[in-house]
Nucleic acid binder design. Structure first.
Lengths: 233, 233
DNA sequence: CTGTGCTAACTAACCGGTTAGTTAGTCCAT
DNA sequence: ATGGACTAACTAACCGGTTAGTTAGCACAG
């Protein structure tokens, strides 16, 4: 009798709860800022339980990242393989980015943080997963279109122009809320549907390259060179 | 004689060195990841010296942020007040963002991180400084243009579409380098000048709104609602 | 009894911040 | 001029709280 809620012996829902809590914590605080104790409390789990399921904080983080990039990657790949015109694929691509960001609110902040972090926590495998999105967009843009749409826009720059705003829009929401609350300005932004529509129109405009491209827009590395040099070894 | 290098009594170059080291450290590791000891070592300064010049790690961080947003804010404000056509101002705005990111390589990562961090380290004053950029773009776009250029593009969405890619482009450089080095793909991106030219063309295209805007693209808050709920108070 | 799911309690290291003290210069009263 | 009061700039050593990670063991299903 008194059948305990959350019985043991079931193939452990705790693992899933840990992952969910971890993804929230990592998104909100970053890898270094995240506390394993806090994750445990949020998942209603003993800290040792985390180390029972995952080798380390870093391994847990990697798991969260891979889940995320896997989901996003598969989503866009599915679009690329559909039998629709190139322009439609690009529109779908944009919608997919936004939908993924909506469904997993932790995706944009974690992605932005990883960029800022210079990929310090990204092993090659995760890096590969992260690269699926731009690679897929590239394949969409480069695929033969049956004579139509002459100029192929630069895949990388197009990726920047689409992903950048989407990540920015979602990740900036909390800060914008604070700015609005402080009365500094009214920047809550449009509803999601309007934003997506706007980004899709933007994407279409970006594809209307044709002339104006001037240089090939490839090759050569920018002359930037800087960033923290180590104190000494 | 033997005039000591770095004599005391001079208004302390150490403060500047600390700020420089801190900005690099905060950009590379984030607020939580940054180590005061590491900043001290990098600035060739005793740790206590940091607490002599700054009240706390947080205060030091705020100083770094304010420097950055001040510089960027003044730069774009200068553009807004020039006597040139609206389109030229927007092009200059884009160039200014890129130039600022180039001159202060720590700016993009810190900005992205602060967004991801939900502005946890941003006091109202810093938030205000951060808001100067979008507010200025808005004033540029909304200003009377002498009859020309009928449709005013949405200032906030335009800001997303410009700042997003620029931050993304700069902040992603180290990760892209890693991807390229790993042989996953060739994503070093175009030289800076080409990128700026591309973004300026993009900006021009975004301003050619006119039709297609459908809805007003304002008001109403998106139905998103999620994010970490506290464990309990 | 055995292995799986789980936990309380612990440890070792790290890190933000402090403290008590030194050095080298300025200012000024005599 | 000079010596003493004062201060900015700087340092070594330390402290206490936090945190990633460990351990030893309990409970129960099969």
């Amino acid at each position: 009798m008194a059948p305990r809620a959350r019985s043991p012996r079931v193939p452990s829902s705790s693992r899933a709860r840990i992952l969910a809590a971890a993804s929230a914590e990592f998104a909100a605080r970053g890898f270094d800022g995240a506390g394993v104790d806090r994750i445990a409390r949020q998942a209603v789990v003993n800290k040792a339980m985390i180390y029972y399921h995952f080798a380390s904080k870093a391994a847990l983080y990697r798991e969260v990242l891979r889940d995320m990039f896997c989901a996003a990657g598969e989503r866009v790949r599915a679009i690329a393989s559909r039998e629709i015109p190139r322009a439609a694929k690009v529109r779908e691509f944009v919608a997919a980015l936004a939908a993924e960001a909506e469904r997993r609110p932790h995706f944009p902040p974690i992605m932005l943080r990883e960029l800022a972090e210079q990929g310090r926590h990204l092993d090659p495998e995760t890096l590969r997963l992260m690269h699926v999105m731009p690679a897929t967009l590239r394949s969409i843009l480069r695929a033969p279109t049956g004579g139509r749409e002459a100029g192929v826009p630069d895949p990388f720059l197009t990726y920047c122009s689409l992903l950048g705003p989407v990540m920015f829009f979602f990740a900036s929401a909390p800060v914008r809320t604070r700015i609005t609350r402080l009365g500094l300005a009214q920047v809550d932004g449009p509803p999601l549907a309007d934003f997506v529509a706007y980004m899709q129109r933007t994407a279409m405009r970006l594809m209307a390259e044709g002339s104006g491209a001037a240089r090939p827009l490839r090759r050569a590395r920018s002359s930037r060179r800087r960033h923290a040099q180590r104190p000494r070894p």
